[in-house]
Simulated scan of single mutants.
Amino acid sequence: MRHNLRHLRVFVAVAETGSVSRAGELRHVSQPAVTQAIARVERIAGQPLFERTTQGLFLNKAGEVLLTRVRRALEFLDPALVDISPRLQVTATTAQLQSLIAMREAENFTLAARRLDLAQATVHRAITQLEQEARRPLFERTAYGMIGTKAAQNLALAARLAFAELAQAEADLGEIRATEAGRIVIGAMPLSRAYALPQAIVRFRAAGRRLPIDVVEGTYDDLLAGLRRGEIDFLIGALREPAPIGDVDQRVLFHDTIVLVAGADHPLTTQQTISTADLARYPWVVAPKGAPIRGHFEAIFTQEGLAVPGQLVESRSLILMRELLNASDHLGCISRLQAEAEISHGLMNPLAYSLVDTERPIGLTLRKGWLPTAAQAEFLDMLGTGTD
């Protein structure tokens, strides 16, 4: 949101006390300043947030929604600010924290300024102001760029999560006005893009939802990092066992198995019985190291004391696998549901090789404690409905 952090802190004080004068005392500002701050917050929210009575100011439904999000944002932000300097709770601005985030990620003033569409001097001044308040450097100059200290990295992450909560508030407030705001950002692994996700998107649009849906592709590690920074709302795909880190939750939607596939003219497609030694003679298209399906692939050979084939193409691309299989004697190891459409259209052929113990959970990975908007919750419900 475009809110001023100091104004949001005043809003919280008024919400908790029901009094302009008491809020002013708590935040050490004048009553007119409190009134102006509340007016600004309501203007940005696009609706009144308080019922004004002779007994005081009381939150309406929109105010309660915003208060929930602001409190969650400050729960992320304040410990990281205090860790650097307690005064930053009072002095830190949205612009300064945005500059800190950009510098932490770009590690260069010029690139950070370009990312924010600001003058380099503006970003430099914002970082200097934070460092003056902290009374210590927040970035260290190295041969590789300006590297954030541990405290700066923690604050940048906390600020990202806080700003994500405030962005969620825009969508929450839009629901009250019966308008759509915000977007849904999904980290999608290969199976979900071919199977569960299209069905859910169709249902979502059929329900009349029009807000944008961003489908982000990438490696699992990159998607997980984006989730933990608040850039991605949730991941959908093969779950990791155990969960990769303690600040995420995993939710199973359904289970999938693995299938071995070949092109239409491959000699193994006509064999009724295929041995593991037969498989070992051919080159393969497989998922990269670290992917759950890769572990199942390697186990096919190691469980029988054979070496894993050395001629491997590592890729998550279904299209690349399909084209290699039909242009050569490569074999593929892939999710059965992901390959379902290709198999049904005769573009891939499943091999008559018995696989055991290849079932794997497919589902959602979410930030622990994440609070979805109404639209996000509706979409998650449709993912579950679409995969029963």
Rank of each mutant, 00 (worst) to 15 (best):
G182C: 13
G310M: 06
Q376D: 04
V82A: 00
A178L: 15
A299Y: 10
H28S: 14
P309V: 15
L97N: 04
R69M: 14
V308M: 03
L161E: 04
G346P: 12
L138K: 09
T54P: 00
A15T: 08
L81C: 07
T142I: 07
V259L: 02
Q199P: 03
V313P: 06
D172P: 08
E231I: 12
N349G: 03
L227S: 07
S99K: 04
Q89L: 13
R367L: 04
A277R: 13
P212W: 08
S335K: 06
E140A: 09
A181E: 10
F163W: 02
V313Y: 01
G305D: 00
Y144A: 14
V65M: 11
Q153M: 08
H330Q: 07
L347Y: 09
A287N: 15
Q199E: 12
I44M: 12
R322D: 07
Y220K: 11
I343W: 04
F301H: 04
L191N: 14
A143E: 13
D256Q: 11
C333G: 10
E180W: 05
L26K: 12
L191M: 15
R193F: 07
Q120D: 06
V286R: 10
A37P: 06
R251M: 09
A188P: 11
P350N: 03
R294K: 11
I201H: 00
I274E: 02
I236A: 00
L331C: 04
V70D: 00
P350Q: 03
K289G: 10
S354V: 14
D221Q: 08
I232M: 03
L355G: 12
Q250I: 11
T110H: 07
S317E: 06
E241L: 11
C333K: 03
R251D: 08
L324G: 00
I232R: 04
L325H: 07
H266P: 11
I300L: 09
A375F: 00
I184K: 01
V313N: 02
A341H: 14
G305F: 05
R27K: 15
G346H: 08
I44N: 06
W370F: 09
I293V: 13
T373M: 08
G187Y: 09
R114T: 12
Q55C: 05
R9N: 14
I293Q: 06
L366A: 00
G305E: 03
L347P: 00
T365H: 02
H330L: 11
R205G: 06
R43F: 07
E75R: 15
R240E: 10
R360T: 11
S21H: 13
L224Y: 09
R294M: 06
H345R: 15
L239E: 02
A15S: 15
V90M: 09
